[in-house]
Design a protein around this nucleic acid. Structure first.
Length: 823
RNA sequence: GCGGGAUUGCCAGAGCGGUCAAAUGGGACAGACUCAAAAUCUGUUGGCUCAGUGCCUACAAAGGUUCGAAUCCUUUAUCCCGCACCA
């Protein structure tokens, strides 16, 4: 067989490219489908098998949709700003752009090899000024609306990345890029995006994402962390201080207060007598900050001040504590040691008194002792709570809050765990923040007409710090307001900014006048199917929702959400079942696989092992066998005689089309492939098949194996690209259930015969005794039975007088179960 | 600690109330072809019984719901993944 995969792949790649068949335009007459895989960071080590899996999943859907008449937008781009390229450049004393563009070229080459239906004319590269210009533009819009702002706060600093990180980029106290590196807490002035303004909407709209995986939604809900409670004013030194609590029903149990050690106004509370103690404590904190945060014991120190409980008017001591989060709520809490585990631990340690105010609902008030042996942090019935005694927690929460509201001492509020997004990075290879500092005018945004603020080409990585700082050509500018001396901001933006809206730019990537054309975006958006890994649940997948909502508020889109359908693919593990890693030596390189087998073999194998949302392990024998199947398919298509299809073939083919069409729509690629294989096993045994049916069969495989399909398609005499052909339709009427029924009967007969042979040993002749009306079924199948059993077959009806039946087996015959005799 | 998800035959992986001793692939074994091998094809692959439609034990473990459970519920165990002092 003359089928050189390498040549064929090149040939069709070229043909597709020359004819630009995957380039698309808006067409209001056609239904659109936006199929998107998360764009990669173009790392120097190239495309790995996980990328390949990701892209193939999306590509199969894209191809399926194209063939079903959709106008399919299937673009690809690169998240090409970022640290690895910068670090490589520092090492080689070069420019990150060089590394980045080399890496992109190699990515593109590999992606093209995979036979993907990308519209390359829409490629987006975030490190190019014509892209990041619009990052800056959005930043200015946010600045205008006070959503981009600068503030000093305690921030996460990764000593390895030498930059600050967003909350989302800190996992277990470590940097997301450096599992072995604890982040440090630094107090710095940094740029933030006010994502918290959208917290409630981001939280509530999760409910509209019906086609997102449940676990991603749960993760986002946890991350945004909406909780409803009460804000209460406590008086400290004649000033009101707010606290947030979800348990206002325990307010009679407050025996102390704790203010966060990081609270910016901590010192206002600290009395002069306690100042030394507090400062000692704070020092100790910074030295422990590098320890594993999770194991920190609850510690604190008395501030010297007392707070007045707004309801009981009791005076309770105020502590500074290490376990109170500074920027959640108001950074201060009311402590109820009898009903909270943490408060209990703290009170025990410092010998603070406790007061029981909640008991179990079924306990009697009088029978309860005042001693607190362990905290009871649940809802219950109030005791020792003045006029509220006897109420259940839920009603008490309401009544107490109303009471406070009536006295103007508190109110119902909603709080979120979500923090503002820290976007400043002290690194070179990112989007410059378009801000100029002027001694006279302060913070001045770069005027829109001056965008983009370009990264200089001519830079030197001399010291450890961001080379922008020492680049006078970059930093020294005139103030756009007063014309005086100004200095540019040298921090760049988090790369997650770039990826927060790239999917909009695909809709109109060459637009020089606007971020994108509203009409074009309206046509293509939202993303119909977004495929990527689950690791972005609380980073990219929150940010891109935030940006979409912001763009909507700018009037650039009507959408509340960028993607209503999200799919998380599983991980591809090494053959040993563990995560692929160089050190384990179990890495599979897609390029090598393509070379050894073919891109089609790789594609179809990747989606054949398991359901695409599940992790699966690479298998060398598995890909081997898939390659055999691809070859078998080719042999079948080339060698089968083109004539007429049997009724059985037609029946099976129509059922196959029906089922595969359903499976593909639901992304059950693995099941579709099984059915396709079974069909080919069957069809290979057929004498001939009609050209029309063969066409359909090749179309079915084309979504998995596009190169092979194109080649076969043209070899059997078709002119157009199969990639653009119409998906086959099935004819329900051709599905012959009678034939299917008969096949089942023959199958079970053969099973029985084999079973008997297993027991009694080899035989030569088979006599079948069917009940009269089934005789014909078996008669028609004589050849088939013979082929499968290698026996000389005779078929009788039980009522046949002249039948050969020496042991009188025929009397055992039943409907659907003929009697048999072997000799 | 909290919250998700998983647990199927030698392995991988379908199945998600009856048609299930459980698709499909890999592996293993046997057979056909061949001088032989590779490729290809066929069969077997829980146990017992047996010239077949039978019985038993089975889908992590134990209970439960049901006429009926791999499939639903409860508890337990193991594994994976997220969040971890958010008041």
């Amino acid at each position: 067989m003359n089928f050189d995969f390498e040549k064929i792949e090149k040939k069709w790649q070229n043909n597709w490219e020359k004819k630009k068949i995957f380039e698309v335009k808006e067409d209001s007459k056609k239904k659109k489908f936006y199929s998107l895989e998360m764009y990669p960071y173009p790392s120097g080590s190239g495309l790995h098998i996980g990328h390949a899996f990701n892209y193939v999943l999306g590509d199969i859907m894209a191809r399926f949709k194209i063939m079903n008449g959709f106008n399919v937008l299937h673009p690809m781009g690169f998240d090409s700003f970022g640290l690895p390229a910068e670090n490589a450049a520092i090492k080689a004393k070069s420019h990150p752009k060089i590394f980045t563009e080399e890496a992109i070229a190699s990515f593109v080459k590999q992606q093209k090899a995979l036979g993907l239906t990308y519209d390359w004319s829409r490629m987006v590269e975030t490190h190019k000024p014509d892209y990041y210009k619009w990052d800056q533009w959005i930043f200015l819009k946010m600045f205008e609306k006070k959503l981009a702002f600068k503030k000093e706060s305690a921030v996460n600093w990764c000593p390895k990345c030498k930059t600050v990180l967003a909350n989302e980029q800190v996992h277990n106290g470590k940097c997301w890029r450096h599992e072995d590196t604890c982040v440090e807490i630094k107090h710095l002035e940094q740029w933030f995006l006010k994502i918290t303004d959208y917290a409630d909407e981001l939280y509530e709209d999760i409910n509209t994402l019906v086609n997102w995986p449940e676990r991603i939604k749960i993760m986002q809900r946890n991350w945004i962390g909406k909780s409803e409670g009460t804000e209460i004013d406590f008086e400290i030194n004649n000033k009101k201080w707010k606290i947030f609590t979800t348990r206002p029903d325990t307010i009679f149990g407050v025996t102390f207060m704790v203010i966060s050690a990081q609270h910016p106004k901590l010192m206002e509370i600290v009395t002069s007598e306690q100042k030394k103690e507090v400062e000692k404590f704070l020092k100790k904190l910074t030295s422990t900050s590098e320890k594993d945060l999770a194991d920190l014991e609850k510690e604190g120190v008395f501030t010297g001040s007392y707070a007045v409980n707004p309801i009981t008017k009791e005076k309770v001591p105020v502590y500074a504590g290490n376990f109170v989060v500074a920027d959640y709520g108001s950074g201060m809490i009311m402590a109820v040691p009898a009903h909270d585990d943490r408060d209990f631990a703290f009170a025990k340690k410092y010998g603070i008194k406790m007061k029981k105010v909640i008991i179990k609902e079924n306990e009697l008030i009088d029978s309860v002792s005042d001693k607190v042996e362990k905290p009871f942090p649940y809802s219950g019935k109030l005791v020792n709570s003045g006029e509220f005694t006897g109420l259940f927690s839920d009603e008490a929460k309401e009544h107490i809050t109303k009471f406070l509201e009536s006295k103007n001492l508190g109110k119902k509020v909603v709080n979120f765990k979500l923090r503002d997004w820290l976007v400043s990075r002290q690194r070179f290879w990112g989007t410059p923040i378009p801000i100029i500092y002027c001694d006279k005018c302060g913070i001045v945004p770069v005027p829109e007409k001056d965008l983009p603020v370009k990264l200089p080409e001519n830079i030197k990585f001399t010291s450890e710090r961001n080379p922008l700082i020492d680049n006078k050509g970059f930093t020294d500018v005139k103030c756009p307001k007063c014309g005086g001396k100004g200095k540019r901001e040298t921090d760049t933006m988090d790369t997650f900014v770039n990826s927060s809206w790239y999917f909009f730019r695909y809709c109109d990537n060459k637009n020089k006048k606007e971020i994108f054309d509203k009409k074009k975006a309206k046509y293509w958006m939202p993303i119909d199917l977004y495929i990527g890994g689950a690791e972005h649940a609380c980073m990219h997948l929150i940010y891109f929702r935030f940006y979409t909502k912001f763009l909507r508020d700018l009037g650039l889109t009507d959408l509340n959400e960028p993607a209503y359908d999200l799919f998380n693919q599983g991980m591809v593990h090494g053959e040993d079942g563990t995560v692929m890693s160089k050190s384990k030596g179990n890495v599979v390189d897609p390029l090598e696989i393509i070379k050894k087998y073919s891109a089609d073999t790789l594609r179809i194998f990747l989606v054949s092992v398991a359901s695409p949302d599940k992790d699966f392990s690479w298998s060398n024998t598995g890909i081997e066998s898939m390659h055999k199947f691809v070859n078998k398919f080719i042999n079948f298509a080339i060698n089968i005689k083109k004539g007429n299809s049997s009724e059985k073939t037609e029946s099976k083919l129509n059922r196959l089309i029906k089922e595969i069409t359903e499976d593909l729509g639901e992304m059950r690629y693995n099941l579709a492939i099984i059915k396709l294989r079974q069909f080919i096993d069957f069809a290979s045994e057929e004498k001939e098949i009609s050209k029309k049916d063969l066409d359909k069969i090749i179309k079915l495989i084309s979504v998995f194996c596009p190169y092979t399909a194109e080649e076969l398609w043209s070899r059997i005499g078709n002119k157009e690209f199969i990639s653009l052909e119409k998906w086959p339709e099935y004819d329900e009427k051709k599905i012959n259930s009678k034939l299917e029924e008969q096949e089942k009967l023959i199958g079970s007969l053969i099973l029985d015969v084999n079973n008997i042979i297993k027991i009694v040993g080899d035989k030569k002749k088979l006599f079948v005794y069917a009940i009269p009306n089934e005789k014909e079924v078996y008669k028609e199948a004589i050849n088939q039975i013979n082929k499968k059993t290698n026996l000389d077959v005779s078929v009788y009806s039980v009522s046949d007088k002249d039948k050969y039946d020496p042991e009188n087996k025929s009397k055992k015959a039943k409907p659907q179960k003929p009697a048999v005799y072997l000799e």
